[in-house]
């Protein structure tokens, strides 16, 4: 018995140097290829998770997109009143400009939320994404926003009072808007967000100056 076992082993031994070599070479190539693929896969996944990730539910970008949409919506309402009832043609022109610009920007921001697969309405309180921690006031209003009563007063105003009230409310509104744009610029480096926030900041600062000139002219 032991000798038989030995014989079989010997037979295997004699064939081994000839046969396993090509097989093991293939195996080695295969292993190299699989290892390379695996490393690529791991690297790609890690890179995707680290950089390609879209802003999440609680991100500053999502908070900005949602809150600035709401902030803009009120500006659109005020600007449409100015466009419809302003006495000074410059006020009507500015109303048209602000309403259309900000309504379009709402569309941009809502599109981001869709692309990031987030709902238009957030689960966190307004302004909680702001780096400086400035929240909403006692009426739940974001910086610069007018109260319902102020908006109603603007709707009901007549004559030059429309211009006067619009200038006052819109300067305040824009200051709050610039503040929020600054907030997201501090917190985010996503190109589409930075680009729009910078554009908002510039345009609204320019319009604040314009409104102040109109205010002096009217006063």
């Amino acid at each position: 018995m032991p000798s038989a076992v030995q014989e079989t082993t010997v037979d295997e031994q004699t064939t081994q140097p000839a046969e396993p070599r090509p097989t093991s070479r293939t195996l080695r190539y295969l292993t190299l290829a699989v290892t390379a693929l695996l490393l690529l896969g791991v690297g790609w996944t890690a890179a995707t998770l680290a950089t390609g990730r879209t802003p999440g539910e609680e991100s500053a970008e999502a908070g900005f997109a949602r809150d600035m949409s709401r902030h803009h919506a009120q500006a659109v309402e005020m600007a449409m009143v100015a466009y419809a009832k302003g006495q000074d043609p410059a006020i009507r022109q500015l109303g048209y400009d602000i309403a259309l610009t900000q309504q379009a920007q709402i569309g941009h921001m809502q599109r981001w939320l869709q692309e990031w697969e987030l709902l238009p309405t957030g689960s966190r309180p307004a302004m909680s994404w702001m780096p400086d921690g400035v929240g909403v006031d006692e009426n739940g209003l974001m910086p610069g926003m007018a109260t319902r009563e102020e908006i109603t007063r603007l709707h009901e105003a007549q004559g030059v009072e429309v211009d006067r009230l619009f200038i006052e409310l819109m300067i305040k509104h824009h200051i709050g808007g610039v503040h929020m744009a600054d907030g997201v610029l501090k917190a985010s480096d996503r190109p589409e967000v930075v680009r729009l926030a910078q554009a908002m900041k510039q345009a609204q600062q320019k319009e604040i100056n314009e409104l102040r000139k109109l205010q002096q002219g009217a006063g």
Binding site: A73, Q74, V76, E77, M80, Q103, I106, I151, H155
Partner: peptide, 9 residues
């Protein structure tokens, strides 16, 4: 894309 602003308040 249609707004909720304005209208009857």
């Amino acid at each position: 894309g249609v707004p909720c602003s304005s209208g009857n308040y």
